[in-house]
Computed example of a mutant assay.
Amino acid sequence: MPEIFQKGTLYLCPTPIGNLEDITYRTVRCLREADLIAAEDTRHTKQLLLAYDIDTPLTSYHEHNKAEKGPQLIEKLKDGLMIALVSDAGMPAICDPGSDMVRLALEADIPIVPLPGANAGLTGLIASGMDTTRFTFVGFLPKTQKHRLPVLESVKAYEGTLIFYEAPHRIQQVLGEMLEVLGDRRAVLCRELTKRYEQYLRGSLSQLRADLAEHVAK
């Protein structure tokens, strides 16, 4: 029997990290039946909704408007609306302001239902060849070297796999800092996950830096 989605409930809906087919039937139905979809980037989410013929109203909820928009969404939930929260890609509340929305909902005794789905960190991990029995998710490092180095120092003694997210334009710099702080340990660089040009670069941190420099030089 099909699930009955509940009014006055916040649903956390994961979206594809690249390939649009990586979405569950349950998530598609939840997005269709919601009264409102709160999206980190409405322009990005519109493309997904068009692909699945979903015409649910969209509203923006992101880092720059969360202080104002979060309480507004809570009031709508209290009024009985069913709201689906999505990020640009992957799991909402992982490295995005969705975590703040979850805290507001908990404080207001709003029911929260998480739906399973795509996640970049775990997708990369299972194909990396690294240890999957013990791992920790570090996420995005701070934007400046001054603040990145202490974070790297804090995790260098961890014996399991470390999972980082990083922007392409900073990757060479960050790999150099990792080499300096963590030592020339084995690493895997994953990019374009689930997309046509998905790629894994495997080797030591120094080898990855050299491979990237060679790629840029071509």
Rank of each mutant, 00 (worst) to 15 (best):
L162K: 05
L48N: 02
L189M: 04
D88R: 09
L77T: 10
N65T: 10
I163N: 02
L125R: 00
V188K: 00
K195S: 04
L73G: 08
M101P: 00
G121P: 01
L115F: 10
L208H: 05
N19V: 12
L58S: 06
L115A: 05
F140S: 04
S99I: 13
V113D: 01
K156W: 05
P111L: 02
Y11W: 08
R134V: 14
L104Y: 15
M82G: 05
T42G: 03
L125T: 04
T9N: 03
T15N: 08
P142D: 11
A105G: 03
K146Y: 11
E214N: 10
T144D: 06
R185K: 11
D100Y: 15
V174R: 00
Y25G: 01
R186A: 11
P150F: 15
D88L: 12
E192Y: 03
L49Y: 03
R196W: 10
K66E: 15
K76M: 14
E153C: 09
Q145G: 05
A127W: 04
L179G: 06
Q172N: 15
S99R: 07
D35A: 03
G124C: 10
L20Y: 04
K218W: 10
F135Y: 15
T9P: 02
G18L: 07
E177S: 09
R148P: 01
Q173V: 14
V188R: 01
A127E: 07
A157L: 13
Q145Y: 08
K76C: 07
P116T: 14
G124N: 06
I94G: 04
L81T: 11
L179A: 12
D109I: 03
E180G: 01
K146P: 00
R148S: 07
L193I: 11
D22H: 07
A67H: 14
T59N: 02
K46F: 04
L149S: 10
D53L: 14
F5E: 08
L81S: 14
K7F: 13
E180I: 04
T24K: 01
G117F: 10
G80R: 09
P116K: 11
F164N: 02
L81E: 15
K69E: 15
Y165S: 03
L179V: 07
Y158R: 02
K7I: 13
A213H: 06
H215Y: 13
D53Y: 15
L189G: 00
I83C: 05
D53V: 15
D79F: 10
I17R: 05
I23S: 01
Q47W: 08
L193K: 00
R32K: 14
G117Y: 06
C190K: 00
D109K: 12
P116R: 12
K76H: 13
P71A: 14
G203M: 08
V151Q: 06
E198I: 06
